[in-house]
């Protein structure tokens, strides 16, 4: 049975998640990838205000394709999470509860998730026309000049995810540790 979750995420529910759990996520999430992360961290380093509230939020690593007229979203799917490993801690410090992407990540990132009590979900990769159907609304929240690398506000309904790393150190990618 899938576990239904809504954003903003409650700490209590995150604590109960285990690597391998199948989750259907609904509500508003944030889309941000490489360039947006660098800009968010620059803003933090300068002591500036962040363009989005990260507390209790989930960041989906995505650069969607443009929405054709009449469609809620263009193709929508995860990019490789490991590229964001060294850029994740500042966001966790601001209360980020979950990251969503594809593929295995570093051991040090896994330790950070335990430290901050955050979870890492994986979304099915390369099936972005299929996932577009789970998006009800998408708009640019900040950094419009970055094009597909801008920050997006995304409303999703029953986005299918697996818990890849839980907050207890559990790891779904057991096959590649051999």
């Amino acid at each position: 049975m899938p576990i239904k979750l809504n954003t903003p995420l409650e700490r209590k529910k995150i604590t109960g998640l285990k690597a391998g759990d199948f989750v259907l996520l609904s509500g508003e999430i944030i889309g941000a990838r490489d360039a947006a992360h660098r800009r968010i961290i620059d803003a933090m380093n300068r002591g500036g205000k962040l363009p989005v509230n990260l507390s209790g939020q989930a960041v989906f690593y995505v650069g969607p394709s443009p929405a054709p007229p009449g469609k809620a979203s263009g193709s929508f799917g995860p990019t490789t999470s490991a590229r964001m490993d060294s850029l994740t801690e500042p966001l966790l410090q601001k209360g980020l509860c979950a990251t969503i992407g594809k593929g295995a990540r570093s051991d040090s990132l896994k330790e950070l998730l335990v430290k901050y009590g955050a979870v890492y979900f994986i979304a099915p990769p390369g099936v972005a026309a299929y996932l577009a159907k789970k998006v009800k609304k998408i708009s640019v929240a900040a950094y419009n000049d970055l094009g597909p690398e801008a920050i997006f506000k995304i409303e999703v309904k029953d986005l299918p995810l697996f818990v890849a790393y839980d907050i207890h150190g559990g790891d779904i990618f057991k096959f590649i540790r051999t």
Partner: peptide, 18 residues
């Protein structure tokens, strides 16, 4: 993946966002 191929083709949504 199979369903994605069908949706991409009929709805003219790219197979992958990349």
């Amino acid at each position: 993946i199979i369903e994605n191929a069908g949706i991409a083709c009929t709805e003219k949504l790219p197979l992958c966002q990349d």
